[in-house]
Amino acid sequence: MKILCAGPTYIDESVMEKMGQSKTNPDLDPNYEKFHRSVERKISKLVNTDARSFIMLGEAILGLEASICSLMEKGEKVLVIYNGFFGEGFASYVEGYGGTAYRYEDDFQRGINLEKLENFLKNHNDFSIATMVHCETPTGITNDIKSICSLLKKYDILTVVDAVSSVGGEFINFDDFNIDVLIAGSQKCISAPVGLTLITISEAAKAKIKNRKSKIPSYYLNFENSYDFKGAPFPYTFNENLVYALDRALDLVLQRDFVKIHRDYALETREIFTKCGFELFAKDSLSNTLTAVKTPENIKSSDILKGLIKRDIIISKGVAQNAESIFRIGHMGNNISLQNFKELYIALDEVFKELNVKTKASLYETFLKSDIVKKD
């Protein structure tokens, strides 16, 4: 199956080989701990910082919930900034742990409007924490987290960023962007197996945790247990296989200008669909890791996906209210290859013909004229 969805992404064979290795007992072997810490430093390098990064055993939603569980105390107000499905999801974690979530909603087809947010904060800034999403995969938008987090810092508000679908594919400078907690996943742009959450944390966030008046209401979701556990290297037994795979995947990302590769494929993907008469869902702040395209009139996204699956290609449909009105192409991680996209466009031409969708031009022929093909 050719994987061109919004994640998980295709995993390189060398990464899978590393996952097949079992070498030691992570709880007891000091050499494993040294290796594990070296992998964590690679995560920090990926986001251009010396700040502490650590790995949690569990899919990336674990990190989203853990950020609230660890940082927020019962009764605190949290500003939930969102312009998409996943951004709003932070509110459920806030309310679940006894906080007050102030939902700040913006246009789902545009990036967060900084001027509008700044005007809001002039009169409403009594928040201890603010949450946001860098790349909203349901809509293909990447928010300007550098500007948003820097603005929030003026009001001493800690910033929590869901970067699950952007780390590795979008440029991030953790320190310069004024981020306090950055949450990534192993299975998106990094193209490692599902099952690990990657956290980078600031000293300000550590201080907030250290100075809590109440205990963190979880053991497994306690950030402090991951970066300052007493008496043992780790708070629980790690899956060494997943970490070996992650280490190899990080090496593959770091040895290339992966951000540029994502940007180039994003630009070409958007241009190809636009030239062929399709409308993109996002009106600005377009993501470099995936593209959301509006389905043609009277066509459901599930019909397009069914046609592609018959041809051993998988992409993503929309989410929530846009489930059947958007289809999404994931040009992220190891999904990115000329062969994958060649086969995708050939298959889409066939599927649209079967669905009686008339396009302005052949997607495949337009692809052959693109700069990506010419440069190859």
Rank of each mutant, 00 (worst) to 15 (best):
S70R: 00
K23S: 14
R37S: 05
K353F: 10
I3W: 01
D50M: 04
I329F: 12
A204G: 01
P8K: 04
L254K: 00
P217E: 04
P217I: 00
E88T: 00
A232Y: 02
R41K: 15
S38L: 07
A6P: 02
K34N: 13
V80W: 06
Q339T: 04
I145Q: 05
F127S: 01
K306R: 12
S301E: 09
I68H: 08
H331S: 07
L114M: 08
Y93A: 04
V194S: 15
H124N: 15
K300T: 02
E105K: 13
S325E: 12
Y227F: 08
F127E: 02
D371M: 04
E268C: 09
I179R: 05
Y364T: 10
S337Q: 03
E118F: 04
R256N: 11
D50V: 12
A51G: 05
A232T: 00
Q255A: 08
D264E: 15
F281R: 03
Y93D: 03
I199L: 08
N340C: 10
I157R: 02
Y102M: 12
S92D: 14
L121F: 05
A204I: 00
K230Y: 09
K122R: 07
N25R: 02
I11F: 10
R263A: 15
T159N: 15
I3A: 03
M1Y: 08
V161D: 09
Y265K: 03
E343D: 15
L242W: 06
L344G: 07
E76Q: 15
G96V: 04
L121K: 00
Y32F: 15
K210W: 01
E354N: 11
H262E: 09
I81Q: 12
S92C: 10
R263T: 14
G111Y: 11
T139P: 01
C189P: 15
D144S: 06
I313E: 02
K45S: 14
M19T: 02
G96M: 11
Y227M: 07
F127Y: 13
Y32V: 07
T159Y: 14
S316R: 00
N322S: 07
L151Q: 05
D303C: 03
Y155P: 05
S301V: 07
F90N: 08
D126N: 15
F127R: 01
F229S: 03
E73Q: 13
E95R: 12
K353S: 15
T295K: 03
N239H: 01
M19N: 13
G330S: 12
P26Q: 10
C69P: 07
N356D: 15
K306Y: 13
S218W: 05
I112G: 11
V164H: 11
I11K: 10
F367P: 12
T197G: 05
N335Q: 02
P138L: 07
R311P: 13
P30V: 03
E343P: 05
P233A: 12
D29F: 10
E279I: 02
G58Y: 11
F54P: 02
R103I: 13
L152G: 05
S166K: 06
E88P: 01
K358F: 13
D228E: 13
K283E: 15
V80A: 10
Q339C: 06
N356P: 01
K310N: 14
H331A: 06
I68K: 06
L151G: 08
Q187T: 02
M332Y: 04
E33Y: 15
N83Y: 11
C276T: 04
N173V: 06
A292Q: 07
V319C: 07
S92N: 13
I81D: 14
S287N: 10
I199C: 10
D257I: 00
N125L: 03
M332L: 14
K206M: 14
I190Q: 14
G98W: 11
